[in-house]
Computed example of a mutant assay.
Amino acid sequence: MSTTPPLAAQVVVVTGAARGVGALLARKLAQHGAEVALVGLEPEELKAVAAQCGPAASFWEADVTDLEALSTAARRIQERHGRIDTVVANAGIAIGGPLRDSDPRAFDRVIEVNLLGSVATARAFLPALAESGGYLLQIASLAALTPAPLMAAYCASKAGVEAFAHSLRAEVAHQGVKVGVGYLSWTDTDMVRGADQDTVLAQMRARLPWPANKTYPLDPAVDRLLAGIARRSPHVYAQAWLRGMQAVRGVLPGLIATVGARDIARLAPQLKATAASRLRAVGAGGAADTATRGATVE
């Protein structure tokens, strides 16, 4: 039976590593002795994070939806570091608001980055993980466990990556590769802070039942992800209460459809009046994705 190497003996790739969960996870992995390779869109931010991760760290600019660029990065990372033991598919963006008011390009881009970007990440790095008998941790979300109005693109993408990772787990087990899914609730990142700048979305979130209406600190959430990586866990919960959501997820769509419908009806005039303010992905990461593609939304 193969044993899991300690973090200090691993080479770990983290996508979406320029900020937030990815950046802090990379720093904590490096503190535990891992060699980290950071992948993302913002070279200056990646360079700064890599510098904080020590001289063995590397950074690679690549869009996770570009399979060719990711495959090139995977090959070069393996050449530089000698192997790849763990890959954390963390890159993601989000938009909020009603489907009918959304820009189709921005809506589709969320699914492209979050879901198809995760598929491309797996395609690019699975050959190296098969060589090392490694681990792929797919970052999902509370949004994978429960639907939420005004978050259709994000919920669809995160439900998709959860299902994708569960399906992939059985496919690659005979190659010695383990696959895990990481779940986070609202965590103090640029993405969540960006969403909270929208007063209507913030009102909607405030009406969620406890504990789903809180914003949780980043540091302990990343510590739990780190512990899951060390164990190569099939499920990793960045907030402990998320584990309990698995038992009740079947009843949530009906409940949310009833309660959410009333809230949306109440907020409909405000949502309509402010629709033009939510045509792009939220937060600094969303802005970086838009800038990289040179996209303009009128």
Rank of each mutant, 00 (worst) to 15 (best):
K272V: 09
A221G: 14
A261C: 06
M245T: 14
A195F: 11
G228C: 00
G194N: 03
G182D: 00
T290K: 07
T187H: 07
L252M: 08
M204G: 02
L208M: 11
R207K: 15
V251Y: 07
A221W: 02
W210G: 13
V282H: 09
P220H: 04
Q197E: 11
R243H: 13
R266P: 03
P209M: 09
T258C: 01
T199P: 12
M204W: 05
A230E: 07
L184C: 00
A206D: 09
A295M: 12
N213K: 12
T292F: 06
D219G: 10
Q197H: 15
K272E: 14
L255G: 09
V192Y: 02
L255Y: 06
T215M: 05
R243Q: 07
V236L: 05
R262M: 12
A284N: 11
E298A: 06
P217T: 01
A291M: 05
G286D: 03
G250E: 00
T258D: 03
L279V: 09
D223G: 09
V259Q: 10
R249M: 14
L255K: 08
L242F: 06
D196H: 14
D219C: 09
I256V: 14
V259M: 06
A221T: 00
W241S: 05
L225R: 01
A206Q: 15
D188H: 10
V179G: 02
L184Y: 04
I256R: 11
V181Q: 02
D198S: 12
G254D: 05
T189Y: 04
G294A: 04
A295W: 11
R205T: 14
A212H: 13
D190C: 05
A288R: 00
W241I: 01
S277C: 06
A268T: 13
S233R: 10
S233T: 12
G250M: 04
A276K: 09
D188I: 03
V200P: 00
A288F: 00
P234I: 00
Q270F: 08
V222M: 02
A265S: 08
R224A: 10
L201K: 10
G286P: 01
V200I: 06
V259L: 02
T290F: 13
V222P: 00
G283P: 12
A238W: 04
W186G: 06
M204E: 05
T199Q: 15
L267D: 11
W241D: 07
R266L: 06
A238S: 12
W241Y: 15
G228D: 03
Y216K: 03
K214F: 15
A230F: 08
L267N: 09
R280E: 14
L279K: 15
P217I: 04
G285A: 13
T274E: 13
A240R: 08
A227M: 04
L225M: 12
